[in-house]
Nucleic acid binder design. Structure first.
Lengths: 139, 139
DNA sequence: TTTAAAGTTGCGTCGCTTACTAAGGTATTG
DNA sequence: CAATACCTTAGTAAGCGACGCAACTTTAAA
């Protein structure tokens, strides 16, 4: 199964916002789109969903923009994916009435639960690069 | 993300074959399709993939049909899904070149690995109902 | 108070994938 | 050789994903 691009994009833009979480300033769509190489028009729709889910805060009007709603440690991959896609991480069909349909569905629900637990353990702060001053250099 | 129907169907038909694994007989597409309420023509394509992946064995010609290639304990959800979809369970895009693209990709690869481990722990034998003689009945 | 910068919303749409149908080919058995 | 059942491939209709666009609203600054 393929991970939707919009979910990946959401992770990218949130990771970008996480980089400046310490400084308390808003970032504009144009800047975010350029840094993450995304279409600004599409990014707007993604940010809207993230706002509705309470993951980012927006300020309108001149000098407006977006900022993270919580500390990056408190935002997980699971939460991001569910914010973008709704429902479950792995969405299996209700079942078609076949003899083994229910058992199969139950099995995938278990798989979903396991994935959910794992994704709750991966936070946004793991997606931001090391402090750039401590960059890698060899003598 | 949605689990493809063909993967669910594959699980169903394999579960059906698992029920008669002890007896050493082939099952025909028509019968399997009826029991699992699937389109016979579509089921054929699914069974072909499962055969190419080495999960089932087919016998052609008159009195032909399908049977499981291995013991149900030895076939996992992970193997089934990969047989049907190829590659990984969670397929994330290579990355678009954005500043956080690589970090995001790596995170989802970790999620995929975790899911893979979980799905290897769910075997076909867990999808077949209890022996029908020991059915649930109350006095 | 005016103006322009920025987010908000909804519609449109192009292209690809999925789920499925159909038809002709091939192997096996009696 | 004829009947049966699997094998293969081509085709298709509907749905969805990934955008683009345009009109509207809000707000800071001049």
């Amino acid at each position: 199964m393929r991970l939707p691009l919009k979910t990946e994009y959401a992770c990218q833009v949130l990771a970008q916002l996480a980089r400046t979480y310490a400084e308390d300033r808003v970032r504009q769509v144009e800047e975010l789109a350029k840094l993450e190489e995304l279409s600004p028009n599409y990014l707007v729709q993604i940010l809207t969903k993230l706002r509705q889910a309470g993951l980012v805060i927006s300020r309108r009007g001149k000098n407006g923009g977006y900022l993270l709603a919580r500390h990056p440690d408190e935002i997980s991959l699971a939460e991001i994916a569910i914010a973008m896609e709704g429902g479950d991480l792995i969405e299996a069909s209700p079942g078609n009435g076949g003899a083994s349909a229910k058992a199969v569905h139950d099995a995938w629900v278990r798989a979903n639960d396991a994935l959910h637990a794992s994704c709750e353990g991966i936070s946004l702060s793991e997606l931001i690069p090391e402090d750039s001053d401590a960059g890698d250099w060899v003598i």
